[in-house]
């Protein structure tokens, strides 16, 4: 077993885990953050997408030991105090980007990462950014619309000085 100090959603936590423990299991297990989903365990579906130092990664392929000292952001970390949803999350609710919801946390994280680096993406940019995230319910149309809506919301919020 090894001891790790992880920074997840801006909070520090110490965990004792197997040396090869997957970030996914550490998040869902000892850290009590089940929002990150396991859809394949093989890096194929993107349901477990989280951000490590701002970059989207599959938590199922990422050893927890590798993220020590790096900022990890999960879908729970986008929710503000009092359950205040982020612009991307609100856009998914408004834009109908949610059906069964199992891929949604991963989709939300991929879109969040995209908008952090490209605040004004084209639909093609969005589709490119979501290529690693599978969805079986929506046909992606309303997910792409939600992502573009999120970009608009964030730009408007920035112009208005609100929380994005």
């Amino acid at each position: 077993m090894i001891d790790l100090e992880l920074t997840v959603n801006g909070e520090l936590a110490r965990v004792r885990v197997e040396p090869g423990a997957r970030l996914l299991d550490v998040l869902r297990g000892p850290l009590g953050l089940p929002g990150t989903k396991e859809g394949c365990g093989n890096g194929e579906c993107g349901a477990c997408t989280v951000l490590v130092a701002g970059r989207p990664v599959c938590a199922c392929l990422t050893p927890a030991a590798e993220v020590e000292g790096l900022e990890v952001l999960t879908v729970e970390g986008l929710v503000g105090p009092g359950g205040d949803l982020s612009a991307v999350q609100r856009a998914f609710v408004e834009g109908g980007g949610v059906q069964c919801g199992f891929c949604t946390p991963g989709m939300v994280m991929s879109v969040h990462a995209l908008l952090e680096r490209n605040p004004d993406p084209t639909p093609e940019d969005v589709r490119e950014a979501l290529t690693g995230n599978l969805c079986r319910c929506t046909g992606y149309a309303q997910i792409v619309e939600s992502a573009l809506l999120a970009a608009r919301k964030r730009r408007e919020a920035r112009e208005g000085g609100d929380r994005a």
Binding site: L33, P34, G35, T36, K37, T74, V75, E76, L78, V79, G83, L85, Q89, R90, F92, V93, E94, G96, G97, V98, G101, F102, T104, P105, V108
Partner: peptide
């Protein structure tokens, strides 16, 4: 708004 959507986007829906 879909009644299940907010929990799902927040990672709160329990599968």
């Amino acid at each position: 708004p879909r009644p299940d959507a907010a929990d799902k986007v927040a990672g709160r829906a329990a599968y």
